[in-house]
Amino acid sequence: MAHEHKLAIFRGTLKFKSNITKIWGVFVFLSIITIIEVALGIIKPEFLTETRFLAMKLLNWVFIILTLVKAYYITWDFMHMRDEKSGLRRAVVWTGVFLICYLILILLIEGDYIFEVYKNNFIKFDF
């Protein structure tokens, strides 16, 4: 069995000599992201918690984007998605991305609506 590994990450800007060095490189990258996340979670910088973008704190957007970056590198390099045929890659990724986005969108809108109902109706819930 031939196992061809694509050894470049960050769109080809960082090339590794062997698959093993690439694994360690990705590990270092994932660790850095996790450290940033934990540090932000402990410090909670004010300019990130005060500012809101699309009804959500900027800090939470940062967390979600960093999570997606981590998910990308776990899937692409640890699960060897980078080396699979593009058909398999698209079948797995787009199915998930489309269905999950739809589910989250619809459930969060519904949850927010029920919150408004609880808040603005004539029945007292805080007792």
Binding site: G96, L103, L108
Partner: peptide
């Protein structure tokens, strides 16, 4: 294994989306 992973990912996202739903419902 990929089939299984996709379906399991959808199961987990169902749970996490449900968590988000309840959290938005009691956001205050």
């Amino acid at each position: 294994m990929w089939f299984f992973i996709v379906s399991d990912a959808l199961t987990f996202s169902g749970f996490i989306a449900a968590y988000g739903f309840s959290r938005f419902k009691f956001i205050d």
